[in-house]
Amino acid sequence: MTIMKHELRQGRTSFLVWTAAIGILMAVCICLFPEMKGQMEGISKLFASMGAFTAAFGMDRLNFGSLPGYYAIECGNVLGLGGAFYAALCAVDILSKEERGRTAEFLLTHPVSRAKILAGKLAAVLLQITVLNVIIYIVSVMSVMIIGEAVPWRELNLLHLGYFLMQLEIACICFGISAFMRKGSMGTGLGLVAILYFMNLIANISKSVRFLNYLTPFGYCTGADIVSAGKLNLGMVAVGIVISAVGIIAAFVKYMHKDIQA
């Protein structure tokens, strides 16, 4: 509990900045919908004829004139990318920062097992991501209500659940990476998100590499798939859960016996 509270205190500023940034952008995107709605029908037809580019973002399968379609693309990109970057930054540095900042010596010479330190830090990461998502969810629902639209509960819940699971998976992978890193972990985390994001875009363009969607957590939170299917792809989610577990186990296996450098 002490470790978790300490981590929450350490990550407070970053949490507030990212929550505010994503929340404000989401609210702005939603508030722009009434103005955009009238222009969207033409734009939807235009996008539908743009081939691979629109396929990459799933825009060929969505109606921009409807709130679920607009939300899946515009808000999805804000929460999808913003949330993924936050999850990566939050988790990839959580263990390595102790060695980089040379505070590991302070922490690990107190009578706390490494397993408890790992558990406390992981709990702090997951809690911050959860609270961020709850706040963003509330902001989004309230914004939809403010603009006078009916809340598309099913689509909205599924989209937010998908993004939440994706952020958790990225956090778990980055947590595993953090146990192996000593320096420069931030770049690795951001780079990983970029790679996973582009894997999803490529998989959406070409059928021959569609399997990549099973490897990237962006695969099961493609807005177009969720809105059109009305459900999450549970096969992809299951693979994501396994990858997340591998990330956490790797962190424990490595960090329990890691030599801490001076």
Partner: peptide, 16 residues
């Protein structure tokens, strides 16, 4: 560690 106090040669702490 519960019964040991350690003073490192270079003392570094959490920023802020």
């Amino acid at each position: 560690l519960a019964q040991t106090g350690y003073l490192p040669s270079e003392a570094l702490f959490y920023s802020g």
